[in-house]
């Protein structure tokens, strides 16, 4: 099994799917000749040519809408919206159009569209390149939303997304861009499934994207004290894998949710509601969320470090939950 960096796994998935299926095309800003803003589409233009690998103008709405129209008429486009923040510029085409086409057309049209986008969290990219807007996306019926935390999932989830017949937004973490890990090209990573990264019996920590390594770091600290933390990599933001989350909570009775987005109306709240609703009888302590404060993302390193959840914050939250 090859060991790849996160961005190499993305490139590898794109390459393999384009080679497998000539209906797959890649379009976006800087994706063809420059090979992607951070290298994830390097080599695709040479291998697949300018018809299927296209540099676009800086026109997010046109990128999204053109990909939508292409998806409705026989292609399987992978559109790149460079940063998740820029999704706001394509919001009509994604939210009002792509997400609703299947439903509005009575199921007669479908939209096999993948939108790749990068979240620049934890990399000093500031208030307009680092927002974690996954809750916005997850709130839209018709969209599927995933956020891989490892090279293996970056490959597997993108591959599954390209083969899926619905619009899927794949959020990628710039913070994980150079992280290395095994990539099993034959493995099936279904949408809508969470993964238990580390088993434990005392406490469940749910995380996704760049907070998964933070949760694992906290789990190592607590393991030194004999506390068993089960880390659930949510990875599918919509739909949530409710069964895996509930099974973990049923085992541990305690839940901490860690995310880089702000708290109010966030995905952490949704997971807490799941635990407090269907998981009520198994909970032994209040659910605690460890999140960014309700403020835009700062650029300066010391402010950014204070802003995002760190392993110490997760450990502190775990202690509070374990006191009950």
């Amino acid at each position: 099994m090859p060991e790849l960096k996160y961005w190499q796994a993305i490139r590898s998935a794109l390459r393999d799917e384009m080679a497998r299926d000539e209906r797959v095309l890649v379009l976006g800003e800087d994706v063809a000749q420059p090979g992607g803003p951070f290298g994830a589409t390097k080599g695709l233009l040479d291998e697949f040519g300018p018809s299927r690998v296209r540099d676009t103008p800086i026109s997010e709405a046109a990128i999204m809408g053109a990909a939508l129209g292409a998806a409705m008429t026989g292609l399987r486009p992978v559109a790149e919206i460079m940063f998740l923040d820029f999704m706001t510029l394509a919001a009509d085409q994604l939210v009002n159009q792509a997400a609703k086409v299947s439903w509005m057309s009575g199921g007669r049209f479908h939209v096999p569209l993948v939108v790749r986008t990068i979240c620049g969290n934890r990399r000093g990219t500031g208030p307009q390149h680092a927002q974690s807007l996954e809750a916005w996306l997850a709130h839209v019926p018709g969209l599927k939303v995933v956020w891989p935390s490892s090279p293996g999932d970056a490959y597997g989830l993108l591959k599954t997304a390209i083969r899926d017949d619905d619009p899927v937004v794949v959020v990628e973490s710039l913070a994980l861009w150079g992280s290395r890990g095994p990539v099993d090209e034959g493995a099936d990573v279904p949408l809508g499934t969470a993964a238990v990264r580390q088993p434990g019996g005392d406490l469940t920590v749910a995380a996704w994207g760049a907070t998964v390594p933070v949760a694992l770091d906290a789990a190592r600290h607590l393991a030194d004290e004999g506390i068993g933390v089960e880390v659930v990599d949510v990875r599918s933001i919509s739909p949530l894998d409710e069964a895996t989350i509930l099974a973990s909570v049923a085992k541990t009775g305690r839940l901490v949710v860690v995310h880089d987005a702000v708290s109010p109306a966030g995905v952490g709240a949704e997971i807490a509601a799941l635990a407090a609703g269907q998981g009520f009888d198994t909970l032994r302590a209040p659910v605690v969320r460890v999140t960014a404060p309700f403020a835009p993302v700062p650029f300066a390193k010391h402010l950014e470090t204070a802003y995002y959840p760190q392993a110490d914050d997760v450990v502190a939250a775990a202690r509070r939950v374990l006191e009950r």
Partner: peptide
């Protein structure tokens, strides 16, 4: 018929996308 549309201008990009699709195919 790709669709009527309740958003002013909302149908332009998908129409362009259908043309892109024809060109690629």
């Amino acid at each position: 018929i790709l669709g009527a549309n309740a958003i002013v201008g909302g149908g332009l990009p998908m129409g362009v996308g259908a043309a892109l699709s024809a060109q690629v195919r």
